[in-house]
């Protein structure tokens, strides 16, 4: 396939991975553990959107706010019922707990929505043709919405008191605490943001491909690859990380079997971890 066309697909996938990776990075920055249930929180958001779409007949993008709200609620619920009780424990325990939580959420999805593949909209979208390039309307919507969300997050982190408090906590936890930053409230906002952005990633992934209970697990690896590439704990790095991983995964199909796309994400991640464990953009903030 055409290089430019694959690049476009890569940007679409990259936008989706970016949103997931920002969530992972925010959680890591504040709570210092790798949240393995992030993919399944994203899948949960996608399925909530599916229910809204089915019930209302609206397009998936219109269901996005509901999905984001629901996933934010789910993330806070998980934190308050389980992770909060493990705050003092080592990050290893939290990691294992979140691995179990991923399966709990996946089971719930399978119970409520069934184990088969589903899509938001039946029928074929009429693509735009620009030169030799084929652009699906959904792809444009996904990229535009992802950009809007990232800009919104940037404004939140740099312009609001709570956003700055989040950055402060991720920067220097002890100093933030003695400065009177309300830790538990920041943690809650972090979960809400990670859940909401994850849900957006899930909805966009569902728009781009299909919904499946395993969808969260299958994006987890590229999402973490993106977060690590960008320097985990650094939400701005996740943008670059997501785009690099997304484009690399799509472009790789020119030379290898598309079935091995996740392996490409993995290979880049391992390479980065070995060569530059702090991520490419560590120490820099956009």
């Amino acid at each position: 396939m055409d290089v430019v066309q694959l690049f476009v697909y890569g940007i679409v996938l990259g936008s989706i991975l970016t949103l997931g990776a920002i969530g992972v990075s925010l959680i890591y920055g504040i709570l210092r553990f790798a949240h393995f249930a992030q993919g399944d929180v994203a899948a949960f958001g996608a399925y909530i959107a599916l229910s809204v779409v089915v019930a209302s007949g609206l397009p998936a993008l219109a269901a996005l706010p509901v999905a984001m709200l629901a996933a934010a609620g789910l993330a806070i619920l998980i934190d308050q019922t389980v992770y909060r009780r493990l705050r003092g424990a080592s990050p290893v325990i939290l990691l294992i707990s979140s691995f179990g939580m991923a399966l709990v959420i996946r089971s719930l999805i399978q119970l409520v929505w069934g184990p088969h593949n589903q899509t938001f909209a039946s029928g074929i979208q009429i693509p735009y043709r620009v030169g030799g390039l084929v652009l699906k309307p959904d792809h444009l919507l996904i990229v535009a919405a992802a950009v809007a969300l990232v800009v919104g997050l940037h404004l939140f982190l740099t312009r609001t008191r709570m956003g700055k408090a989040m950055r402060a906590m991720s920067d220097n936890m002890d100093l933030a605490l003695v400065s009177g930053v309300p830790a538990e409230r920041v943690v809650m906002v972090t979960w809400a943001l990670a859940g909401a952005l994850g849900a957006a990633a899930g909805v966009f992934l569902g728009m781009d491909t299909r919904l499946h209970p395993q969808m969260g697990w299958s994006v987890l690896l590229p999402v973490f690859a993106a977060a690590i590439l960008g320097g985990i704990g650094k939400p701005y790095g996740a943008i670059a990380g997501g785009l690099v991983i997304g484009v690399a995964m799509e472009m790789s199909t020119m030379v290898i079997d598309p079935a091995y796309k996740p392996a490409v994400a993995f290979a880049i991640m391992v390479l980065v971890l070995v060569v530059r464990p702090q991520g490419i953009f560590a120490g820099k903030v956009l």
């Binding site: 700055k164 408090a165 950055r167 402060a168 920067d171 220097n172 100093l175 933030a176 400065s179 930053v181 903030v285």
Partner: peptide
């Protein structure tokens, strides 16, 4: 004793 990835003004604000 500072927030390294925040600006001077933001540090004071914190």
């Amino acid at each position: 004793n500072v927030f390294p990835s925040m600006t001077v003004a933001e540090n004071l604000e914190m």
